[in-house]
Amino acid sequence: MGDETQISAERRLDPRWALLGCLGFVVAVILTPLGAWKALGSEALLLAFFVGYLGVNLGSLARRWLGLCPLLVVLAVLLGISHPARAGEHAAGFIAAILARNGVALVAVLALGLVYSAVTLIQTLRRLGCPALVVSTLHFMNRYSHVLVEERNRMLIASRARSFGRKRSLWARWSMLGNLLGALFLRAMERGERVHTAMVSRGWDGTIRSLADSEQTR
């Protein structure tokens, strides 16, 4: 997941093509009829080629994929048994087909997120014509979610340090969580005001400009 993997991946495949390709691939996989194992197999092979070509970290890919698997299984089972036309003896095959199909789509999306950094993907969205307001929101979000998560963790630790391991009632837990999130929210908004001040003091006039606007590579 290091910087080098990402830079080499960017050199091998323009993130724009990767993003569009990933979207197209997911649509193709979804369109593959259930039970068309050969088609799905060839799609999986294509995906495997790109995963290898881009040097995706297989360990993290597998870890994330397995992390999302329980959700996938629940979904497949729900869809499988709740569908009257496919109930009965076909249910098992149907569930397996859904699992395989969604599993492949999931690998594609996860690989995209692993091989390109968040910043690269957001800049790619910009180059693909996404509106500037959304791109700036995404940039701010990416930048400050780290800061906010850190602040949140510090507050959680501080509140745990003073609770002395005591079991709390449901309402106490609720109000603790509410107060914590409220404080976090206030900090976020006040930070937003300070960031805006910092931007205005460096000449920001409402237009979002970026070095990447006219450059093809970083």
Binding site: L133, S136, T137, L138, H139, F140, M141, N142, R143, Y144, S145, V147, L148, V149, R152, L181, L184, F185, A188, M189, R191, G192, E193, V195, H196, M199, D205, G206, I208
Partner: peptide, 19 residues
Amino acid sequence: SRDRTPVLMGMMAAFVFAA
């Protein structure tokens, strides 16, 4: 987009994400 809405939107998104 001229006032601080874009910044606060980003902060709000980060907050929702963290929360």
